[in-house]
Design a protein around this nucleic acid. Structure first.
Lengths: 372, 372
DNA sequence: CTGAAAGCGCTTACAG
DNA sequence: CTGAAAGCGCTTACAG
């Protein structure tokens, strides 16, 4: 009946008494059982298909399910069972292709395994990872996948290790994806790749082309990824008995803007000396550097060679196409989920580490050093 | 004790009897209550902070929580309460910036509201949306946000409407983001923008620059977004009393590759006649077209003007920077979550539609038509 | 192959 | 301000 007042009849905030006629309502196993004339146990068994049920009984149940439009209540199922069929993934920013592709791999593998993904982003907030792991623990995610290079700070690593133990207690697992292991006694899975080796390989390629003064741009000291890449850069020089001019190592956030601005500045003020090659700590940095070089009237690769890291699609799309280190990002995401599934098999196995391979992709942004 | 055989001591698949010593174990409210010397009701009340509790009692409980490392069990909470504090979002592909930015907005707003996001992708599989909505319904997501242009097929829209009703039954809501409403009687939220108006505006801008033969590339007939954009394109011509040469409308998937290949082909075989402007149905298509034009020796914008749609970062990064229609993608995502929250306030309100504004961004890829 | 019943870990009227 | 108790909707030994 219409409300006497002209106000819209919106549900008053009366306390929800159980089943007061209004309020949300969806069919339950109970109702399906009644409709099919069987017990709830039987309904559960046909729903899960994990136990023999007479063909005829099964049919009656399936019929009832259809008629009532029944859908299982995942929370009730998770509470009664032991798994939530959910995996959590924590990235810095879903819009960054590095994270985006890994997240895509995680999603796809999870979907194939009948799981759903809880995706969280830290947006670079310090400690954001920790809080998100806690939220995901509340959700009892079957696994929590933390993506990307981690902070090297020992205090932080200890906190992360605590989370790993807590998750493991709960029967879940922490999986580090693109980050080195925490410690031997920490129950966590790891999917990693060889940053040092990749940086070594691409630096050595440049060195082999006759380049000696390579400007290395990008990376923050606390990040494991950065330290490993710089280490590879240095080692390549060392392998050939060459020295690195420290002025050529220019740290900063992994961003296109950094590549652009730092390159432009060094070109302008010459404070790092000359250079005829640029190593961007990731593809974005490299592309930013390319733009600055071009604006300064330098040709790529005739005057300056440029390389990146990661091989996101952008690398192949710019002109000239960028020489870089290929990372199987999507595969890393898939691997992380597979590893988590494997680990749950063990009651509390040791840390398990999986390595994925990388390789240098030579495109058009590199050439032999100009004769000086 | 070590297993007699040399095999690794992995937990045998014995049936999990309740609390058999091994197995995952985490503290419960029960245990916190005992440790604090109060009832579980009281623990729940301090945890949720939604009810007065004596300061001293509160302290004891908080202490116990800390000591035991207690974390709430979200499934149990959701089962006992009525909300899951979870929102589901369905996109085509998280790696596509159009979807990525919307997903980011959804995530951020959800995080601010204390909710977690279940992110799903269809990867363009027909009907994928429907299945994913069902999964999200199992999860009892507080809202299910479906992103991007929808299929116009009436049968499909009917199925979607069924899902909307089902969700509404459950006390949840379907929210369409970047897609027109289904029908007046369907309980679903809508966050949309004016595709026709945007396409009209940017086409009119080109027309105002003296262009008459504008090549329109991209879009599939079944997609609502495409139909609306083409309608705007046509209307701009009509407003000025001009005719559209149908050969200049070239449909296809929204992809960089389409822009590149179709443009290259038309330049080669001339089957669409001449054109001195290209309207890419989205920025990716436009950038692909730019590449083909450049390879054909044409200058942008001196010889050919190019415009796109969406204004993803790529648009500002290419050279010359692309004139396009700006969409507040991240804001759309946020709006979708806010709308969902608002809708849950009503027991079953009518369809609620929110419009976000768009505008043309003029950059360097457009210029007056060359004198012919 | 099937059912009765306990239990998963919370929240929330209800009663003090 | 606090507690006893019911109930959320499933799954899973246990017993036939």
């Amino acid at each position: 009946m219409p409300t006497p007042q002209g106000k819209p009849a919106r549900a008053s905030r009366a306390p929800r008494t159980p089943r007061d006629g209004a309020g949300p309502k969806r069919a339950t196993v109970q109702e399906v059982a009644e409709a099919a004339g069987v017990s709830t146990a039987t309904v559960s068994r046909v729903l899960n298909g994990n136990y023999p049920v007479a063909a005829d009984t099964r049919r009656r149940v399936e019929q009832a399910v259809r008629t009532l439009g029944y859908v299982v209540n995942a929370q009730a199922r998770a509470l009664a069972g032991s798994r939530t069929r959910t995996v959590g993934i924590i990235v810095e920013d879903i819009i960054d292709p590095f994270f985006g592709f890994i997240a895509r791999g995680v999603q796809r593998q999870a979907a194939e395994d009948g799981k759903l993904c809880l995706v969280c982003s830290t947006y670079g907030v310090a400690g954001g990872e920790l809080d998100l792991i806690d939220s995901l623990r509340e959700q009892r995610a079957d696994a929590v996948i933390v993506v990307g290079g981690g902070v090297e700070d020992p205090a932080y690593r200890r906190k992360l290790a605590d989370r790993a133990h807590a998750l493991n207690q709960d029967g879940s697992w922490l999986v580090l994806c693109g980050r080195p292991p925490l410690a031997a006694d920490v129950p966590a899975g790891v999917v990693d790749y060889d940053n040092t080796g990749g940086a070594h390989a691409i630096t050595d390629y440049l060195l082999g082309q006759g380049h000696r003064r390579i400007l290395y741009i990008g990376g923050l000291d606390q990040m494991s990824v950065h330290r490993a890449r710089v280490a590879g850069f240095r080692r390549a020089y060392a392998s050939r008995g060459l020295e690195v001019d420290e002025r050529l190592i220019q740290p900063g956030p992994f961003s296109r803007r950094l590549g652009y601005e730092r390159t432009a500045q060094l070109l302008r003020d010459g404070s790092a000396g000359q250079f005829a090659a640029v190593f961007g700590a990731n593809d974005g940095v490299a592309v930013g550097a390319m733009q600055a070089l071009r604006e300064a009237g330098l040709r790529i690769p005739q005057d300056v060679s440029v390389v990146g890291y990661d091989d996101i699609p952008l690398a192949a799309e710019v002109t000239p196409a960028l020489t870089t280190v290929h990372l199987p990002l999507e595969q890393m995401g898939r691997e992380a989920v597979r590893l988590a599934v494997a680990l749950r098999g063990e009651s509390d196995g040791p840390t398990d580490t999986r390595h994925v391979g990388t390789h240098v992709v030579i495109r058009d942004s590199t050439a032999p050093a100009p004769a000086s």
